[in-house]
Each structure stands twice: as structure tokens, then as C-alpha cells.
Amino acid sequence: MLVTVSGLPGSGTTTAAKLLAEKYGVEMISAGDVFRTLAKENSMSLAEFGKLAESDPSIDRMIDERQKKIATERDNIILEGRLAGHMAQDALRIWLHAPQEERVRRIVEREGSSFEIRLSETVERELSEAVRYQEIHGIDIGDLSIYSLVIDSTTWDPNGICMIISAAIDGAGGFS
């Protein structure tokens, strides 16, 4: 079984994916991990590779192709990332949603800085990513119709979210 966990920054995807991987004893692969691997393969720091990705759409394509490859070649994994649901064809696709203010509050809690600075950065990042996703893949990140389950991550704590996703995983036959 392949499960994808997607959502905007601060929605709780990494936390949920890690908890699920631990519960089921399966590997969790994040788009961030793929990004770090590609940076290393290109002998670049994360900051250098990130700067390159801003001006070179082939970086996004490489990350997406790597996720597609992982999704088609491996079984019993959890793939976490903003576009993971779009990159995996036969998967239980989960989207975690949270209002922007809550997501920014979580980002500030996790990474520091002021709410105003992180809000500005988040708005800019999300607008930029939405344009890139549309231009590169024809994906409207706001269209959640491909997802099997959409969960508001402000309603439940991480364990509650994992219980909901676990019910969906188990109902779909679970990991083999």
C-alpha cells in the first residue's frame, strides 16, 4: 500500500506521516528528503540548491520525477509532500488542511521569528509555488478533488489525525 500525506506548510503533514510510519513500521519519504538527496547529489548545500530551484524549474521536475519513481517502484511506504498526492497514482491520498493563520503560528513555534515576518514569507512562498505548480504540471493546488480524505488539522491533535488516517488505511486493506 502507498499512502500520501500532503498539505500546505504548517498543516502537520510531516508530523502525521512520521507518526503513521512509526505505527505501521513502514518507511516515510518526504519531498524534503528528496530535495536534500538531490542537493547532495549535485554537491550543493541546501541553501544553494534552494536558490537554484527558485530560478530553474527543472529542479521541481527532478523532485517530482523522483517522487513518481519512488511511488511506482516501492510498496508499503508513506510519501509526504505538497504534491505527493499528484505524483502517486495508486495511493490512499490524504490532504491536511489548516487556516493560514494557524499554519503560520505553527511555523513560528517551530522555526522562530515574528508572526508578521513568517506570514509574509508564507504568503509569498505559497503564491510562488501555486504559480509554479500550475505552470510546470497544470496542477491547481487548491483543487482537493483527487484526495481520498481531507482533514482539518486544527480540529484534532496529531494522534487524533493519525487515528482518522489509520481507520482509512485499515479500511483500505492496510499495509502488507
Rank of each mutant, 00 (worst) to 15 (best):
M1Q: 14
V5S: 04
S6T: 10
P9A: 11
S11K: 02
S11W: 03
S11V: 02
G12N: 08
T13V: 03
T13K: 15
T13N: 09
T15I: 13
T15W: 04
A16L: 13
K18Q: 14
L19Q: 07
E22G: 08
E22C: 03
K23V: 05
Y24Q: 05
E27H: 04
E27F: 03
M28W: 01
I29Q: 01
I29W: 01
I29P: 01
S30I: 02
S30Y: 00
F35V: 00
R36P: 00
A39N: 01
S43L: 07
M44G: 02
M44H: 03
S45Y: 04
L46T: 07
A47D: 14
A47L: 09
A47M: 05
F49L: 05
G50P: 00
G50K: 01
G50V: 01
K51I: 10
L52N: 03
A53P: 00
E54G: 02
D56S: 09
R61A: 12
R61G: 02
I63Y: 02
R66A: 14
R66H: 06
A71F: 07
E73D: 14
R74K: 15
D75A: 14
D75F: 07
D75E: 15
N76Q: 06
I78P: 02
L79G: 08
L79A: 08
G81P: 06
G81K: 07
R82K: 01
L83G: 04
L83P: 04
H86D: 14
H86N: 15
D90L: 11
A91W: 11
H97T: 12
P99V: 07
Q100T: 14
V104H: 06
R105C: 06
R106W: 07
R106C: 08
I107Y: 03
R110G: 03
E111L: 08
G112C: 04
S113I: 03
F115R: 09
E116I: 12
I117F: 10
I117Y: 11
I117H: 12
R118L: 12
S120E: 15
T122R: 09
T122I: 07
E124D: 15
R125G: 10
E126Y: 06
L127W: 08
S128Q: 13
S128L: 13
E129I: 12
A130P: 00
V131M: 11
V131P: 00
R132V: 11
Y133F: 15
Y133V: 04
Y133H: 15
E135G: 04
H137P: 00
D140V: 13
I141A: 05
I141R: 05
G142S: 13
L144M: 06
S145V: 07
S145E: 11
S148G: 15
S148Y: 07
L149F: 05
V150G: 05
V150T: 13
T154D: 10
T154N: 10
T155F: 10
T155G: 00
D157M: 09
P158Q: 11
N159M: 14
C162L: 10
C162K: 09
C162V: 14
M163L: 13
I164N: 01
S166N: 12
A167H: 10
A167L: 13
D170Y: 06
G171H: 12
G171R: 12
G174M: 09
G174W: 09
